[in-house]
Design a protein around this nucleic acid. Structure first.
Lengths: 285, 285
DNA sequence: ATGAATTACGGACCCCGTAACGATA
DNA sequence: TATCGTTACGGGGTCCGTAATTCAT
């Protein structure tokens, strides 16, 4: 049977057409390539080349063999990759989160539960997180709804397990002189049409906002520090969440107003597939 | 990368569980197996085994790797087989035929048209032949109908090309004293209910006979010489075809009676896929 | 103490590169 | 004559088997 390298030479010959080029490409001698081609022929047991005394080219068999070998090389590489990925995944817990602000203490609690594993946390939209969870790219996801009851068909237990781990509430953050700044509560619709300043890394919130305030134009800003500067020095209304406010020192001249729409007052659920529950129970305890 | 042999050793270890057994199975020394396992581990770059000083077993990675390698070995074998088959097919013309009697001169004509190719002819039922033709297991098939017009969708040219190459007619072969022996023509239905002697290797004819003579019982005989003996020494009616009669010397005390049902008076069509027509034109000329 | 895997070591063989050769354009 | 493929040859490295070692049952 051909070695991996010999298969590479063969595939390369199909691509380049001359043994010399292949030898140069791999910085080895031509005789080695000649020998590899001979070995290919004897491995398959059928003629693969049309030869004259000083030229060599693939025949029909050879063209098929080259295609097949190219595929086998690919399959080989992918096979190795799969094993490596499996190993990597076994040493890693991947967490996908819809919450922009890191939920306090969660990562450290997980990392204490699995001291030998690396914790990888990445943000994403709920739909992507759900997909990632079912495709085993995430062991845990944080969703702004209870997936275990959402997908549960009549009485039969859901494929997912979810546990509430915190709340987050979107607020209007208005200049004190804004016409609505002194209200206790507002609906998103009350601000529809007003231009808003938006921190672009706002995740799943933005979809809701666009839907409920279709007439508002939004000024995006994706640099966190600049965003804060803008808030302090402009009179444009903007959004904040209670969680993000907690870590920030107060901004004078702005006041937070509660929004009553239920969609923007979410409970986060730490979610996993039920078949992983046993291994992850320490996280939910 | 692992060699084919090293992959075999690894797969075998997954099966047998000890290096010693693998070494015995392949009649080589244990150290060779040890080294192959080390090389596997270094190729994948991840731990594959749980080891103590004198025991070794696959871990989770190893079990996956073994499964993957088993698959890759299979893919490798199949790849080589495909190339070999392709070569073999390129040196062979495979003919499938629904005609039980070899059509005179056809094989020799084909073999003269392709002197460098081997001709393989095998009998089959029309449905199998059609499938074999579309799946390239046959380059030519002989069918008792015109496939090119049968499958031709409204105006658009068929995928197949067919040319009539001969006829065959099923006949009743009756003892001269049979009550219907003196008729010029009969229908299958006229004999329905009578027990018939049947040469079992009768191919597609038998389906028609069973359908048109559902009340007849048939006595099968698959030994050609015995069949002839039976005909000569019994008064059971039976079938023959005009083509098969031609090669036989007459049997006294039997007379052939024409059957008028169109289904048992067939024209044979030599059929190929249209994309092969150019290479096969000599056969049809 | 038997049987397992690993390590050590020596030799054979394989495989590669250099060089020479042959053929073709 | 320059280029390409094949053949010849020699040396180094690799790979295998034997034997010794270590550990566990």
């Amino acid at each position: 049977m051909l070695t991996y390298e010999e298969m590479q030479y063969f595939a390369a010959f199909a691509q380049y057409g001359t043994l010399t080029e292949v030898a140069e490409k791999y910085t080895i001698s031509q005789p080695t390539i000649t020998r590899a081609m001979k070995k290919a022929e004897e491995t398959f047991g059928v003629p693969l080349f049309n030869r004259t005394r000083n030229s060599i080219a693939l025949n029909d068999n050879g063209r098929l063999a080259a295609e097949e070998i190219r595929l086998l090389l690919k399959q080989t590489d992918e096979m190795v990759d799969r094993v490596r990925s499996y190993d990597r995944a076994s040493r890693t817990i991947s967490i996908g989160t819809a919450a922009v602000i890191e939920l306090p203490g969660l990562i450290s609690r997980i990392s204490r539960a699995f001291p030998q594993k690396a914790i990888v946390s990445e943000p994403g939209l709920p739909a992507d997180l759900e997909r990632g969870l079912t495709e085993d790219r995430y062991q845990l996801v944080i969703l702004p709804y209870d997936l275990s009851s959402k997908k549960g068909k009549k009485g039969q237990t859901s494929e997912f397990y979810a546990k509430a781990i915190g709340e987050e509430h979107l607020l209007f953050y208005l200049p004190v002189h804004h016409r609505l700044a002194r209200r206790k509560k507002l609906k998103l619709a009350d601000m529809n049409g007003e231009n808003m300043l938006l921190f672009s890394d706002i995740g799943f919130w933005s979809e809701i906002v666009h839907r409920k305030m279709p007439d508002s134009r939004v000024l995006m800003q994706n640099e966190r520090y600049t965003f804060r500067e803008l808030i302090e020095n402009s009179v444009l209304p903007c959004f904040v969440t209670d969680l993000s406010l907690k870590g920030m020192k107060d901004i004078t001249g702005r006041t937070a107003v509660q929004i009553t729409d239920p969609e923007v007052n979410v409970t986060y659920y730490l979610t996993c597939r039920r078949n992983m529950l046993y291994q992850l129970q320490a996280v939910f305890a």
